[in-house]
């Protein structure tokens, strides 16, 4: 008797069950916030690398920050465009596989990752195009290579594919 009545109720109003499927990739969503959001927008719209400047110590911070880590003051909204050329300061060349911790994909391999000293003295961590270990060394001149398709950009620092090796003369042309 009770069973029949609950069945009748179910027909009247459907319970709000939550349905979860596990046979597809996780759908993650992260927020950039206002400051890093501006970095993302400049990369997507203008292919620019931007950092923000502390009103007190005048240092440029990358990634941009709402509060200067050193001075502990609000950064305000003072943006600086950073050069897209620089030199490899430190690097590593990974041959072991690394896995994306969120989606389980295997990352490209071999994989040269570098800390690049941009021409205004700000450090930027990115990957390098050069995969020949013997051609890598500290001090080589590099330049950012962007994703050209506007629709493919919008992923912050991943809008730059990698930094490619350039010679000094080419670097001078880029700076002009």
């Amino acid at each position: 008797m009770a069973k029949a009545s609950s069945k009748k109720k179910a027909e009247e109003k459907k319970p709000e069950y939550i349905h979860v499927t596990f046979n597809r990739p996780r759908q993650y969503s992260w927020s950039t916030g206002r400051y890093l959001g501006h970095f993302y927008a400049e990369a997507k719209e203008n292919k620019r690398i931007v950092g923000n400047r502390c009103p007190k110590c005048k240092d440029i911070w990358l990634p941009p920050t709402p509060v200067c880590p050193k001075c502990k003051v609000d950064m305000g909204w003072d943006w600086a465009e950073l050069p897209q050329t620089g030199e490899v300061y430190q690097y590593t060349y990974l041959v072991m596989p690394l896995w994306d911790p969120h989606y389980g994909e295997k990352w490209a391999n071999p994989y040269p990752s570098a800390i690049i000293l941009l021409d205004n003295g700000v450090f930027y961590r990115h990957r390098l195009e050069e995969t020949d270990k013997d051609k890598l060394r500290a001090g080589i001149r590099v330049q950012a290579v962007w994703k050209e398709d506007y629709e493919e950009r919008g992923h912050g620092m991943a809008d730059i594919l990698y930094f490619k090796t350039i010679d000094e003369q080419e670097a001078k042309r880029c700076l002009q």
Binding site: S31, T32, Y40, T92, L98, S113, M157
Partner: peptide
């Protein structure tokens, strides 16, 4: 994921 992913190398790197 919004800063630095893709240039991570793990502790060994």
């Amino acid at each position: 994921p919004i800063w630095g992913k893709g240039a991570a190398t793990g502790a060994i790197g």
